[in-house]
Design a protein around this nucleic acid. Structure first.
Lengths: 164, 164
DNA sequence: GTCTAACATTTTAGATTTAAAGTATCAGGG
DNA sequence: CCCTGATACTTTAAATCTAAAATGTTAGAC
């Protein structure tokens, strides 16, 4: 049986009392929101398509890049380690969903693309996936959507400069 | 060598073009922000304290609950599976950082608390951790902080009702 | 008291993920 | 050509995480 805790009011945020610092609270709320959504999507992908979020993400990146992506680009865009990408690529290639082909002018590089089979398979999932996300976030008004987007953009900019 | 991709402009959001739906974009932006912050914290905890985010999270939950928590409560608050909590608890107990003691009126339940050693160890990390988060998020103004908090609260409420 | 179902936790098996080391390729200087 | 260092990717070992099964406990129905 699945014992995963359902996320309700008892989550990361309960860690903090009111006197604690604002930034930490903001971070924990962000984490809670993301985890909640991520867990639902993960469960749905497993139940309805017998696949995982990283596999879906991998294919989604390729769908958006018709000319293909290198393994490194996939690693960057998915924000996971290179080794991880290699593993997922092995799976998907084994199932005939992607194609890893060498690039003429650089023998270190591989160009990864969706196969026709992969694209067909993905489109099916993408439609459902989008439905789930809209189901979760669609109740927010147009204005709220825009405001949150802007604020997260600001937040992203605030985080990025500390790169080094 | 660490090959983790550094998160800059090339992240989840690049997956989508402008014509795509708002909810998906919001979700991907949320994911990007969380991943960026999470990866930095993970790296810092490893470099400076030779520990991991889940271990830190485990101890943080206990620090905020002086009366202790059951394994189930920890699972809920950390938003991970029960088996996962058991594993981390074994580690921390082995290192003398936490204490798992039976509860008189319910022999199924265990009460987990930080040991003095654990609390000392944690406080050290928590101070640094808060510094890192403030470093990343502290540039946002008071007003921006509040607005994002409110919006994420709304977002959380929009997601939760679909629990079943 | 005995069943039955729910509960709290642990165990198990397997997949994912990571950081780091390893392999192969490229680019530039000498 | 031969280094050197950087780059692209894979492999490895260890930790994490999950879902499901297993174990032990409790509570309520009968």
């Amino acid at each position: 049986m699945n014992q995963k805790a359902t996320a309700t009011e008892l989550n990361h945020e309960s860690r903090l009392q009111s006197e604690d610092h604002q930034s930490i609270r903001l971070w924990l709320r962000l984490l809670t929101c993301t985890n909640m959504i991520e867990q639902r999507l993960r469960a749905r992908l497993r139940e309805e398509f017998a696949t995982t979020l990283p596999r879906f993400d991998f294919m989604a990146q390729l769908e958006r890049a018709p000319d293909g992506l290198t393994m490194g680009e996939l690693s960057q865009r998915m924000m996971v380690s290179g080794g991880n990408v290699s593993g997922i690529a092995n799976q998907l290639e084994g199932e005939g969903l992607i194609d890893r082909s060498p690039v003429p002018d650089n023998r270190r590089t591989l160009c990864v693309k969706l196969t026709d089979k992969g694209r067909t398979r993905f489109v099916d999932m993408a439609v459902a996936h989008e439905g789930w996300v809209v189901e979760m976030l669609g109740d927010l008004s147009q204005t709220e959507h825009q405001q949150i987007m802007q604020h997260l953009a600001q937040l992203k900019c605030a985080v990025v400069p500390l790169e080094g």
